[in-house]
């Protein structure tokens, strides 16, 4: 992920120590000076995200990473960055919570990531990779989405993804979007009017309302443009598992065994969890009998599945928060129980 960011032109990284994502800042501390970029280890998570606000305001591609308790500390800054419509990439390698929790993988920050997290009416584009090659690709794309829409993009991974090893081809960065000229950045105003980046808009009937309307229009455009999803054996499936990230990988193992046993099971895996792939979900709901949601949290992701299919089919659930991992056997057992 760190190398993908470097390849995509990220030249500013600010971070703070927290397990299980320390390898990201550690890599950046070595690599950034080699490419003429800047690595800063901040004195706190709030300082790190605020440095991102500053770096993004200069037009620099920038990134920070953390894990659940650290992401909670960053929420103030994330809300301000969203309000300032500044592009950046934020990685959250989730661990068990609430509180300091533990350092096992988790998906319990789902609500925080996709429903806002900080105060105010804002959204992040949230990408949920399941493999390291996908993490590499999505990290590069994340910088394009961020610049194109002027929005913070979150990469929502987990402790397993952060700590595992897997072969990855380090392909050069290719832009997937035509980035408009950054005409909002603070890069010296000689010869033109000075620009202002701020998030305080005191006039209640004009400035802030207009700003919110514009942001909501942007959110609508992103929802229409960007719904990434993987369908796996869903064409003839009677039961479809809905899962994202690492959980979906475990589910695939269970599905293969279920298929060998003659059970028609498939998987739908959102790659963007905001915007949520409503259309693809609804399409699957037309033909399937039941859904099974598997998540490493106690029923957060399931809400979006039910909303997406407008509760048109029964949705079964398997999930616990706090660092519980799904097993192939456990999912298979659940499939057999609900398949009848």
């Amino acid at each position: 992920m760190s190398e993908a960011a470097i390849q995509a032109g990220c030249r500013f990284f600010a971070g703070y120590p927290i397990t299980p994502q320390n390898e990201v800042p550690e890599y950046m501390s070595r690599r950034m000076p080699e490419v003429g970029g800047v690595f800063v280890q901040a004195e706190s998570e709030l300082a790190a995200i605020s440095m991102i606000f500053g770096a993004s305001a200069t037009g620099t591609r920038c990134m920070t990473s953390s894990s659940s308790p650290g992401i909670s500390l960053k929420q103030e800054g994330i809300s301000y960055i969203a309000a300032g419509e500044l592009p950046c990439v934020i990685a959250n390698m989730q661990r068990g919570g609430p509180g300091l929790g533990n350092i096992r993988a988790s998906q319990a920050d789902y609500y925080q990531a996709v429903k806002g997290g900080g105060h105010g009416d804002y959204r992040l584009i949230v990408l949920a990779p399941a493999t390291l090659p996908e993490l590499y690709k999505l990290t590069q794309n994340a910088f394009d989405y961020a610049d194109y829409y002027r929005i913070p993009v979150m990469i929502l991974g987990d402790g397993i993804l952060a700590q595992m090893a897997e072969p990855v081809e380090l392909t050069p960065y290719k832009p997937i979007l035509k980035i408009p000229k950054k005409d909002y950045i603070l890069d010296g105003c000689q010869g033109r009017e000075p620009r202002v980046i701020k998030t305080l808009m005191l006039n209640p009937t004009d400035a802030l309302v207009t700003h919110n309307i514009n942001m909501q229009k942007k959110h609508e455009k992103i929802t229409a443009d960007l719904q990434l999803v993987e369908n796996y054996m869903t064409e003839d499936a009677e039961v479809v598992i809905a899962a994202y990230g690492m959980t979906a990988r475990v589910a695939k193992g269970a599905i293969q065994i279920a298929r060998d046993k003659g059970l028609k099971v498939g998987l739908i895996r959102p790659i963007t969890v905001w915007p949520f792939p409503d259309k693809a979900m609804m399409e699957v709901a037309k033909t399937v009998r039941k859904f099974l949601v598997v998540e490493m949290s106690n029923g957060q992701f399931i809400d979006d599945v039910k909303l997406a299919i407008q509760c048109s089919k029964p949705v079964e659930f398997q999930g616990i928060g706090g660092g519980w991992y799904p097993s192939v056997e456990g999912i298979l057992e659940k499939i057999e129980e609900i398949y009848k």
Binding site: G15, P17, I18, T19, N22, P25, E26, S29, F39, Q41, E43
Partner: peptide, 17 residues
């Protein structure tokens, strides 16, 4: 968390960051 620098780390010390 694995030996990252802090405000107390002396000049010249090698840490993971």
């Amino acid at each position: 968390t694995g030996i990252q620098r802090s405000g107390a780390t002396p000049l010249g010390a090698a840490t993971t960051t």
